[in-house]
């Protein structure tokens, strides 16, 4: 349905469940994809699975210099950069009273500051091309808050404000910036939960199940498509009705 032939997309956190599904969806739609992440092995496995038009671009997102260099590396590898998906994220959960500066800062650095650096890095090529798609993966938690995740929720809410402001600045240049806010998604992380825990979570979700990485990827694919050219500054909530925002 959505055709991204000839477009080049950089996806961070591509070694994870959601990031991998996003990369696959964009690749299936014809895009060349740059797979970024810290763990090289899963990235190479994904690149091998995708075959042509897939490039492995390892990057430690807590290293500011490496992050600033990533867009240029991506352009060198792929020949362009039309779509940026800031998907990478870490959690360091802690009850707020005990949250250390380091727990706060590392989550802000990786989840928000690195996304800002990458957005800044892709501005120039996108402005020149008069076309661009920025898709920041936020979280339901950024809108609702979550106990134990003061740092994560702040970073994810920060992403939404950042996305909207970028959207304002560059809308006239054919560049859109949007966020996708997943609810509970079944990934390696949620597989560790007990059946009892899963039941409790599902009871809070009107759809009565967790989402799949593919359902997040489908939202990203839409926002990346030419068809979504008039959609900018929005947050697409994909959460089975868990929070109707």
């Amino acid at each position: 349905m959505f055709d991204l032939t000839g477009k080049c997309a950089l996806v961070t956190g591509a070694s994870g469940g959601i990031g991998g599904a996003i990369a696959k969806a964009l690749h299936d739609a014809g895009a060349t994809v740059g797979l970024s992440g810290t763990r090289v092995e899963p990235l190479e496995a994904l690149a091998a699975e995708l075959g042509e038009r897939a490039h492995v671009l390892p990057c430690n997102l807590s290293d500011a210099e490496a992050v600033d260099a990533l867009p240029k590396l991506a352009i060198a590898a792929m020949g362009g950069l039309d779509i940026l998906v800031n998907n990478a994220g870490i959690t360091r959960d802690q009850i707020f009273m005990r949250m250390s500066d380091d727990e706060w800062q590392s989550v802000l650095d990786v989840n928000l500051t690195s996304a800002m650096r990458l957005c800044r890095g892709v501005m120039r090529p996108m402005m020149k091309a008069r076309w661009g798609r920025i898709i920041n993966i936020s979280s339901i938690v950024g809108a609702t808050g979550n106990p134990g995740q003061v740092n994560y929720a702040a970073a994810k809410a920060g992403m939404v404000g950042m996305t909207k402001s970028i959207a304002y600045e560059v809308a006239s240049r054919g560049i859109t910036a949007n966020a996708v806010a997943p609810g509970f998604i079944a990934t390696a992380m949620t597989e560790k939960l007990t059946d009892d825990q899963k039941e409790k979570i599902n009871a809070q979700i009107p759809a009565a199940r967790m989402g799949t990485p593919e359902e997040i990827a489908a939202a990203v694919l839409y926002l990346a498509s030419p068809e979504a050219g008039y959609v900018t500054g929005t947050t697409l909530h994909v959460n089975g009705g868990m929070a109707m925002l």
């Binding site: 120039r124 402005m127 020149k128 600045e169 560059v170 006239s172 240049r173």
Partner: peptide, 9 residues
């Protein structure tokens, strides 16, 4: 202000 950035580019 965005035009001036583009002019410089």
């Amino acid at each position: 202000s965005l035009d001036t950035v583009e002019l410089v580019m």
